[in-house]
Design a protein around this nucleic acid. Structure first.
Lengths: 149, 149
DNA sequence: AAAAATCACTTGCATTTTGCAAGTGATAAT
DNA sequence: ATTATCACTTGCAAAATGCAAGTGATTTTT
């Protein structure tokens, strides 16, 4: 991974996206925030895909440098920081949802089966449901129960 | 990169997408096909981001194993193969378009400025324009002139 | 028909990135 | 005061990447 200070290889929109968030681990952090309402380093670390501690730290730094994530001190525990999506990060939700749609269609064992209601809503109007979810995530809720199963 | 035979780390829809096409180079191949109408190894190699020859070969293999790309013999030149998107690959176009939208919004130097018309159409109705572009790409046209500038 | 060029790779090797285990220093809980 | 928890960093082996230099199959040029 390159850090935010290196110049981009190109300003092609696809390449820009890739360099900003298109890293395997970086996108999983965003998923954890959006779908699981996670907010701290320790919570990210518990993800089933298995972050290495150094990689997680470096990806968080990268996302912050890219203006996608922001860090604040934890309200009650001085050891922790709280991470949340900036406006720029929230705007990635429609893209993540398209990814969910695609995987739901092509992965026969997709866990998207547990969020059929949400998948239907994305299919119907991604922009609309994304807007709604962006508000929820902004309030720190993650994907709420109403979309599950 | 892991090859198609390794099992997935998870069937989370986001992770599935990442393992299938969510590699820096893999997505650039798709971009080259969709936006530039490229079809051969040599054409991909010329991309401004600079593929290494071995990486390009391995990513093509990966995309084929993932069922996103397909290989056919070139019509007139026996040294070449022609690569094209499968149905599964074409279905990634809406996702790529969301990426373009996001980059257009946040990269002040985005080359998306040269496809303002297309960006507007995506904003208005991604599904609709994607459908149209899918047909064009299927015919081997890449993004056509009407969307440029 | 022979020689040269093109094309799609593969190979070898140095550099970079990853993944794991084991710290470390700060805060919190007991 | 002592121990645990948390968010990292460090060190190092293993894997992936990037580059240069092949290689073998066509195709083009002479």
């Amino acid at each position: 991974m390159k850090n935010g200070k290196n110049k981009l290889r190109s300003h092609c929109p696809v390449n820009y996206g890739l360099e900003a968030f298109g890293d395997r681990w970086a996108l999983l952090i965003l998923r954890d925030i959006v779908f699981r309402g996670k907010r701290t380093y320790g919570e990210f670390l518990k993800s089933e895909e298995g972050f290495a501690t150094n990689i997680l730290a470096s990806r968080i730094d990268h996302l912050i440098a890219a203006g996608i994530l922001q860090r604040e001190g934890h309200e009650t525990d001085g050891r922790k920081d709280t991470f949340s999506l900036t406006e720029k990060g929230l705007d990635l939700i429609p893209l993540i949802f398209e990814m969910v749609l695609w995987s739901a269609k092509y992965d026969s064992r997709s866990e998207a089966k547990r969020i059929i209601r949400l998948v239907e809503l994305i299919k119907k109007d991604n922009r609309k449901i994304s807007q709604k979810v962006m508000e929820q995530v902004k309030r720190g809720e993650g994907i709420v129960a109403e979309y599950l199963s």
